[in-house]
Design a protein around this nucleic acid. Structure first.
Length: 263
DNA sequence: ATGGCCTGTTACACAGGA
């Protein structure tokens, strides 16, 4: 079983990229972020033609997440409110950033963590508030499911080896100590990084800025992750970053990360 | 030191991204 995560930066602009990638890498479940489209306009037929069942949670212009699965998913949950009491969620489902579903007994959680803009901004405060609620959300799911795969665009690089140049990290969005601590607190509910089960060295990234020739120079960040519950971590056989889509014309600034499990 | 590029909008610059 293979699960992939990919921030596509508009599913309509990236449709041929995603369809082509699925034809060459027919993963069981593909988790998409930043679809940037309302559900009525999501190009679901293109994926149904490939044999995938789409599950979508979108909004206009910003955010939006989707699951594409070869087999129908069970217990699809939209937003934090799909699991938590809406009174606890408050305004944190206004932006569509969370969708989950169950495939072959594995609860797959697809996240688009807020970017945060800059340290100290209103969006930064929103990011930290969002991560605090994520901790509750994942605690609830881990109490319900033994096998949980939490993946997506986390907009946080946990360690210096996840950044091409860690200089200035303390004041940079995505690598500040407060953000790293917030993500560590989330992982402390019982999740481990699938990529680091297999690869220790740095230099492996999932996002490169469109500007300044960042991809050509491999000036990237590893901010797209698969975090696994203990039972699933044991089953993980491989976790790889496929840089090929980032090499194409008019690419997303992110590239897919794939995890594979033993049966 | 800074900005550099890309997407969607009802636009003809902007917000937002990271």
């Amino acid at each position: 079983m293979q699960v992939a995560t990919w921030n596509v930066n508009s599913i309509r602009t990236r449709l041929t990229h995603v369809v082509g990638w699925l034809q060459s890498q027919p993963v069981d479940v593909l988790c998409l972020q930043e679809t940037k489209v309302v559900d009525e306009l999501f190009p679901g037929a293109a994926f149904e033609a490939l044999g995938y069942h789409p599950y979508i949670y979108g909004q206009k212009t910003y955010n939006g997440v989707a699951l594409l699965s070869r087999q129908p998913l069970d217990s699809v949950k939209l937003g934090f409110s799909g699991v938590l009491d809406p009174a606890d969620v408050g305004d944190l489902d206004d932006q569509k950033r969370v969708i989950a579903g169950v495939a072959e007994g594995v609860c797959i959680v697809n996240l688009y963590v807020p970017n945060g803009s800059s340290i100290g901004s209103d969006k930064y405060a929103y990011k930290l508030r969002w991560l605090a609620l994520l901790q509750k959300y994942l605690s609830a799911l881990l109490a319900q499911y033994e096998q949980v795969n939490v993946c997506g665009d986390f907009n946080i690089a946990l360690e210096d080896r996840d950044i091409y140049d860690p200089a200035g990290k303390e004041t940079h969005i995505m690598s500040s100590p407060v953000e790293r601590e917030a993500l560590q607190a989330v992982l402390a509910v019982g999740l481990k990084d699938a990529f680091r089960k297999f690869t220790d060295e740095g230099g492996h990234y999932s996002w490169w800025d469109y500007r300044a020739g960042s991809f050509r120079r491999n000036h990237g960040w590893r901010i797209d992750h698969h975090y696994l519950s203990p039972a699933l971590y044991e089953r993980a056989q491989r976790c790889t970053i496929d840089v090929e889509p980032r090499q194409q014309e008019q690419p997303s600034d992110h590239t897919p990360v794939i995890v594979e499990y033993s049966v």
